[in-house]
Design a protein around this nucleic acid. Structure first.
Length: 149
DNA sequence: GCCAACGTTGGC
DNA sequence: GCCAACGTTGGC
């Protein structure tokens, strides 16, 4: 899952512990949260729009999917006037901090690692939530010098 | 800051 | 329902 660290970083997550992953306004990304995540699933935390872009650590799914409250809030930049509480458009999950990598894995390192050449992260660069295989999960941890938790 | 990729909107 | 125009993301 991608986040711009200026908006929300892994240090912010570490501080609060658990956070609703709000503001996702892309159907494909929403569907990953709504349909494909289960509590306890591991998530790679990717810092985007920084140089270099890096996977900085991990978190885990901490809730069932539920409606993103920001879609109902007229003061939120994520407000969606076409959505209603009766029939919400956008769903999210809570995510919980797991670990911060001592050696973050750069996008370049991922690109240069043959075992990771098929990572959806590289192929769908605008999609803010992309699936990760178990092999990729383990490889990233190995490159980060970290133990999977 | 540029601009390619690509998702979304809206006219027809 | 097609597709051109438009807007946004995000790497570089």
């Amino acid at each position: 899952m991608k986040s711009e660290p200026d908006a929300f970083s892994i240090d912010d997550l570490k501080e609060v512990g658990t956070e609703p992953w709000d503001g996702i306004r892309n159907y494909e990304a929403r569907n990953f949260m709504k349909d494909d995540m289960e509590i306890g699933d591991g998530i790679l935390f990717y810092h985007s729009s920084v140089r270099p872009p890096v996977i900085v650590g991990t978190m885990e799914v901490a809730s069932e999917p539920y409606p993103d409250p920001t879609q109902f809030d007229p003061d939120s930049k994520y407000f969606d006037e076409k959505s209603s509480e009766e029939d919400p458009t956008w769903e999210l999950v809570d995510v919980k901090f797991v670990q911060k990598f001592d050696e973050p894995v750069t996008r370049d390192a991922i690109k240069n690692e043959p075992a990771l050449e098929d990572m959806t992260l590289l192929k769908r660069f605008r999609l803010s939530i992309t699936p990760v295989t178990e092999e990729e999960w383990l490889k990233i941890h190995e490159m980060a010098g970290a133990k999977p938790k």
